[in-house]
Design a protein around this nucleic acid. Structure first.
Lengths: 207, 207
DNA sequence: GTTTGTGAATAGTTTCACAGCA
DNA sequence: TGCTGTGAAACTATTCACAAAC
């Protein structure tokens, strides 16, 4: 194996592989072949082999990939092994759903804090996380939180992002349906739910 | 302009352009240049020009693109002009947030029906949509609904998808963190929120 | 002067086919 | 025999640069 930069598309698939690997591992399986994993996840076997080849040969011909190493390796590459902590801003419908969402834990995430503007919510607890006043948001700098999740109305998204950046946040998951400008050192991933739904009819036969 | 198949990546960006165009149009603007739109949406001007070139020259050199035609054109390509109707399955935390979500309307969508298994929810109304018994789900065939939104627990996702397909659904937006197998004629887009969050640390400097 | 539309160049990704290892 | 790892080929997408249009 030689040095390779891992392609972005491969990085995008790593969490998929991780999910599959964890799933199998929990069932007591110890090795998995690219063909088996591919069937489980709806991808192609050669895609998996190529992707895995970017970060080391730990597969065994005739046997497959050892799940334990695979999980450890992907966690390490994605830097999930440090137990990343996230702050949620906006505890409305969507924010509440995110707080209750069980899926983050699989990847080692913790939503360590939640903020809102609504005086009636501040001081209360949702899914075990106390809701704090958004006016105090910039103080999270001291709390070793690297990720921000924006679930505020569109009009407040850019300002929220700016405050998060100021507070030392390095990565933002943005649920507002808009582009937010941040310094280049900060990575933003925007999930616009309506936008994904909007491309569905294009791919549908007739109507 | 010559015939071109529209690349998938372009299709993925069309809703972004549509959002920007609608935004400007609501402000009374009539024409927009690729540079202006690009600045607004965080993409590159030449990317916009190339993308638009796949579906006809309606831009005017020195002036830009007429917003009204642009909106009409994108709506037509994405087949949003027929007012697509969606059915939501699973009215939990996430499902409720989706029902309350204002963003769908911008793209001409309507969530026309909602289903759940919980007897306490069935018969009630959420965000104006009555919640029906999931046992009746396959009857939606008669109601001219083309899209399905799956917001049920992972364990029920595959079965829900199968029922939707049986009921004549042609496209599925899946929020369960798993691959769901469907016939090739049905398009599935999976949004795994945790998975998107999981790739964020990879792109963050240090930690 | 400004801005589009697009061929050509570059970059990135997927697919294939098969040598080589267990 | 079964499966990995990978070079090469095929394909897809992005970026550039500039002629033509207003």
């Amino acid at each position: 194996m030689r040095y390779h930069k891992i392609p972005d598309e491969t990085v995008r698939r790593l969490p998929v592989y991780l999910r599959g690997a964890i799933h199998l591992s929990q069932q007591g399986v110890e090795h998995v072949s690219s063909a088996h994993l591919a069937g489980l996840l709806g991808v192609k076997p050669w895609q998996i082999r190529k992707d895995f080849s970017y970060f080391g040969d730990f597969g065994t011909p005739g046997v497959g990939y050892p799940l334990e190493s695979l999980i450890k390796q992907i966690n390490k590459i994605l830097r999930l092994d440090s137990g990343p902590r996230a702050v949620l801003v906006g505890v409305g419908n969507l924010g509440s759903a995110l707080l209750a969402f069980p899926g983050f834990r699989m990847y080692g995430f913790e939503i360590a804090a939640a903020f809102d503007t609504d005086k009636r919510k501040i001081g209360r607890t949702k899914s075990g996380v106390p809701i704090e006043d958004v006016a105090q948001l910039r103080r999270i700098r001291r709390r070793r939180i690297g990720l921000g999740i924006i679930a505020v109305p569109e009009a407040a998204a850019q300002e929220t992002a700016a405050t998060l950046v100021e507070a030392g946040i390095k990565g933002i998951l943005n649920f507002s349906p808009c582009y937010i400008a941040v310094p280049k050192r900060v990575k933003v991933i925007t999930i616009d739910i309506a936008m994904d739904l909007a491309r569905l009819p294009y791919y549908m036969p007739s109507s």
